[in-house]
């Protein structure tokens, strides 16, 4: 399958999902279209491992560290589907396995088991395309820290965006510059800041630059790591709006990790709750936040309600 044409198809599909509803007689499908991202049985341990690791960790042992051999079962048997334009939220406390899961999806950490099928690319965990190439076209992560995102701190914000445009086929510097400025403005960065070096940007602004880069060349899968953590509330709210604008536009399959339940409620169509590396709850936000079934989710929700 040609990745570019399916990306366009996905974007068109997502645009259709946001088009004006056609009234109650419309013959919309009752089942969602096939997913863009399909993760199955993703697992990752840190340590030598033994026969008891799985049995003695998780809810059963109330730990993710195997008492027999000391191995940390960071992610165990995680599966989910995400469609075009859909946002999957992942919540859990620090140490629950959220970061490891994202690093598996971003191909930073090899999985011990499982598969990650991305529309048009097959199973990325077994792909022959280089990880660096996949991270340009198939899976993009918006990091909390812009250095980790591969941005150039000394370069102007607009140059960081233009670099990606030029790399993905834009031939003219002038056009790359103009488009970069449009994208940055769309994400709420004032034109007076476009030529400032990225290192003068706050964390929230640097994340917007990363989002602008994602808009240049819509990835199949967009990963967001704690997008609002460490930002003050008004900046958080603005960033949430930017993220929403981007996810609506891209038609990517988005996975957002946050320990902030309110952020997930606003952004996500669906929620996974992770505890000791396992998915303990999977539902739409209303189910998970208003009628939690697992004791851990109940605790998480109750502690948010102070």
């Amino acid at each position: 399958m040609n990745p570019t044409s399916t990306a366009q198809a996905a974007a068109a599909q997502s645009a259709a999902a946001h088009a004006p509803a056609a009234g109650p007689t419309a013959a919309a499908q009752v089942l969602p279209p096939p997913p863009l991202l399909s993760a199955r049985g993703l697992s990752r341990r840190f340590g030598p491992g033994c026969d008891l690791c799985i049995e003695l960790t998780g809810d059963a042992g109330a730990t993710s560290r195997c008492p027999a051999c000391g191995t940390v079962v960071a992610v165990h048997d995680v599966s989910f589907d995400v469609g075009a334009g859909e946002v999957l939220g992942i919540v859990g406390e620090s140490g629950s396995g959220k970061t490891t899961l994202l690093s598996l999806l971003h191909l930073d950490t090899p999985a011990d088991a499982g598969s990650m099928v991305v529309d048009g690319y097959g199973d990325l965990l077994r792909s022959r395309t280089s990880d660096a190439e996949l991270r340009r076209s198939a899976v993009v992560m918006v990091h909390q820290n812009s250095l980790a995102a591969g941005l150039a701190p000394r370069l102007a914000a607009e140059s960081n965006v233009a670099e990606r445009l030029l790399r993905t086929g834009c031939r003219s510097f002038a056009e790359a510059r103009a488009r970069s400025q449009d994208l940055l403005a769309e994400l709420g960065i004032h034109p007076s800041r476009h030529t400032d070096p990225l290192e003068t940007f706050s964390g929230g602004m640097a994340q917007r630059v990363q989002l602008a880069r994602a808009l240049v060349n819509p990835p199949r899968v967009l990963l967001l790591d704690e997008p609002t953590t460490g930002l003050d509330p008004s900046v958080q709210a603005d960033l949430l709006e930017s993220v929403q604008r981007v996810t609506d536009r891209l038609g990517s399959a988005t996975v957002v990790v946050s320990h902030d339940l309110e952020v997930i409620r606003i952004l996500a169509d669906r929620v996974l709750v992770i505890h000791f590396g396992r998915v303990v709850e999977d539902g739409i936000p209303e189910q998970v936040f208003d009628d939690p079934q697992h004791p851990y989710t109940q605790l998480l929700v109750a502690s948010r309600l102070r």
Partner: peptide, 10 residues
């Protein structure tokens, strides 16, 4: 849940 989200959207 994915089907549910879809149905609730459409």
């Amino acid at each position: 849940p994915r089907t549910l989200a879809w149905v609730r959207k459409h």
